Amino acid sequence: MSALLTPKVIDQEPSDYVRRHCTVVAEFGAATQDSGNVSWLVDTPQGRYFVKTAGPTGEQAPGSPTPYLDHGDRVGLLRNAVDLASSCPHVALPRLLNVIESPSGPGLVYDAAPGELVHVPPDRRADPNSAYQRFAHLPADDLLCLFDVLVDLHRALAAAGWVACDLYDGCLIVDFEGPSLRVIDLDTYRRGPSVNDMGHMFGSSRFMAPEELEMGAVIDQRTTTFTLGRLIWHFGTRLTEQAPRFCGPPALARAVQRACRPRPADRHASVAAFADAWEAGRSLP
């Protein structure tokens, strides 16, 4: 059994434990993100895993970006991620295999998701070799099948009470050999309807609903439908945002366009309603 899958509590920092028992393939910390979290992709004799932590409890190293959440809040989001994983097993979510408690909080051990992260820095979005461009230009049937998975996952999450937050192309990992889709980093999803208590919530402005930018606005399943619609429209139109370029039939395009309407009342009333409209559109020529 892997050393990552057996302990429930360790008396050392996760970084020391990971480096002692695994081969680090990649580290994701201050050099690549500003969240304050520190994560590792690791190899073990039993397979490849992804380990996510809240990072160190002390001050960031000199020159590192200031995290947008303090350590306690980051720990809270990791525990939220554990709740989400346990409430909604789905093929598109990498399996949460273990939670290891440490002096600096939990370490979440996931199956490593095969494939490439769709998100790339803005200056690479035009690169035809980027995962961003390759995803957007998959054959229509392949792209629609991946959207099927994304919609089905969020139908299941909504049924378990979750509302999307910070869903963007940085959550999508695509294995182009399949192709197949995994969805990651859903730590900030919220249980049930809530109120925007941040003003500008977590997320990419390219995909966020208007209410995610308005203090006091209601955040509910209609917010999830907007973000799903924007992701599907952006990539489904081959990055053009133009209806004639959409990869599916007109009825499907109309279902997605409705999801993206600015006023929540004009959208599908729930994720299930959007999923039903999506499935109906998918069945048409």
Rank of each mutant, 00 (worst) to 15 (best):
V174D: 11
L172I: 04
G192D: 03
R155F: 13
F176A: 09
D152Q: 10
D152F: 04
I173T: 06
F147M: 12
G170H: 02
L167Y: 02
D169R: 09
L157S: 01
D152K: 06
H137N: 15
A158P: 10
W162G: 01
A156Y: 09
L150G: 02
L144I: 08
W162M: 03
D169P: 11
Y189C: 00
V163R: 01
V151S: 09
F176Y: 12
D185M: 01
R190S: 14
H137D: 14
Y189R: 00
W162E: 01
E177S: 14
R182E: 11
L167M: 11
L150E: 03
A158V: 07
R191I: 06
F147A: 08
L138T: 10
A164W: 01
D187K: 00
H154L: 07
V163M: 08
T188V: 07
D185W: 00
V174Q: 08
D148N: 11
W162A: 01
V149M: 06
V183F: 03
R155A: 15
A140T: 12
R191G: 03
H137Y: 15
W162L: 02
F176S: 13
A164M: 10
R190F: 09
V174T: 06
V151R: 06
A164H: 09
G170L: 02
Y168E: 11
L153P: 08
E177Y: 13
D166Y: 00
L150T: 02
A159T: 12
D169F: 04
D142F: 06
A140M: 02
L143Q: 15
G192T: 02
L143H: 14
R191W: 14
D152L: 06
L181E: 10
R190C: 13
A164F: 04
D148R: 07
D187M: 00
G192I: 02
D166E: 03
D175P: 08
L144Y: 03
L144T: 04
L181F: 07
Y168C: 15
V174Y: 06
L157T: 02
V163E: 05
P179V: 04
R190M: 13
D148Q: 09
L143S: 07
I184C: 00
D141H: 13
D152N: 12
E177R: 15
V174G: 08
D175G: 03
V163N: 06
A160F: 08
F176V: 07
P179E: 05
L146T: 07
L143Y: 04
P179A: 05
L143R: 13
R155Q: 14
A159I: 01
V151Y: 11
L172A: 03
S180L: 07
G192W: 03
V174S: 09
